[in-house]
């Protein structure tokens, strides 16, 4: 097990010893600071910490997601593009373990980027607007639950984001293992995930049972927090929607297993040719 940790340490070194990853993470911090500071200077009415946080999260989360997808898509495909995969796979480690170490490092990056967003959002808004206690989620995030505090909402929000990020990142990781060209893998993954939200709007109009199983309808888990209306933002024309948190999680779990199985199958079976 200790040795496997060394493998993950290698993958982490390959992620964090590059300038680009620090530009990405730096951008998240700078953006969150810039929005708060500009808002506090330009706004005519007085702003509060809890007034700003939902806006910043709405902007930073998709961005953090995109960065995670880039890292995931580049993880396997990048090795093929650079040609380093040859030297990586001729070590006394099975391909499954090499792939697992990459996957673990990608999940760690997802976790790390969410932590960066969490800390920078709170710290910056706290500094700019001052602390505001006893705020309810109903005021700031429009939840149905009248008792829930804003803090508790945000914590659950990050948990949900972590789950849905994990699924999209696993999709990107699968594409990465299958296509072996980092440009193509990054482009295709981003396209699929970004198209997903518009596609889910469109699918909302289709009155067929299979629509409920399309992955894009389930990636926005945050809408279930605090007993919020599960159909928020979605148009299910006259159908009895089965959408609940449990159902969404089950569908995502199904996709997750498929993505993982395909990644493993492709990576361990295929020849590494020029």
């Amino acid at each position: 097990m200790f040795n496997f940790a060394a493998l993950v340490a290698n993958e982490n070194m390959k992620i964090y010893r590059r300038v680009r990853v620090w530009i990405m993470l730096g951008l998240l911090v700078v953006l969150s600071a810039a929005i708060s500071i500009i808002a506090s200077i330009t706004s005519s009415s007085p702003l509060t910490m809890w007034g700003m946080i939902p806006i910043i999260l709405m902007i930073l989360m998709p961005l953090a997601n995109i960065f995670c997808i880039i890292i995931a898509a580049d993880s396997v495909a990048g090795e093929f593009t650079q040609g380093t995969i040859k030297l990586l796979l001729i070590r006394p480690w099975s391909r499954s373990k090499v792939l697992l170490s990459k996957y673990v490092s990608v999940l760690l990056f997802v976790l790390f980027s969410l932590v960066v967003v969490y800390i920078s959002t709170f710290l910056i808004n706290l500094l700019v607007f001052g602390y505001e206690s006893g705020v309810l989620a109903q005021q700031t995030f429009q939840t149905m639950d009248k008792e829930m505090s804003a803090w508790s909402y945000v914590n659950q929000f990050f948990l949900m984001e972590f789950i849905s990020s994990t699924v999209t990142v696993t999709l990107a990781f699968m594409i990465s293992a299958a296509f072996r060209s980092s440009g193509l893998a990054i482009g295709l993954s981003l396209f699929i995930v970004l198209m997903g939200s518009s596609l889910s709007q469109l699918l909302g109009l289709v009155n067929k049972p299979w629509v409920d199983y399309v992955i894009f309808l389930h990636l926005d888990l945050a809408r279930y927090i605090g007993g919020a209306n599960p159909d928020r933002g979605l148009m299910f024309a006259g159908t009895e929607s089965p959408m609940t948190l449990g159902f969404s999680l089950a569908v995502l779990a199904g996709y997750y297993i498929i993505f993982m199985a395909l990644s493993w199958f492709v990576f361990t079976k295929r020849d590494v040719a020029a």
Binding site: K14, Q82, G83, T84, K86, L87, I90, A274
Partner: peptide, 8 residues
């Protein structure tokens, strides 16, 4: 194997 590609 072929060129010795390394992490640049």
């Amino acid at each position: 194997v072929e060129n010795p590609e390394m992490y640049k």
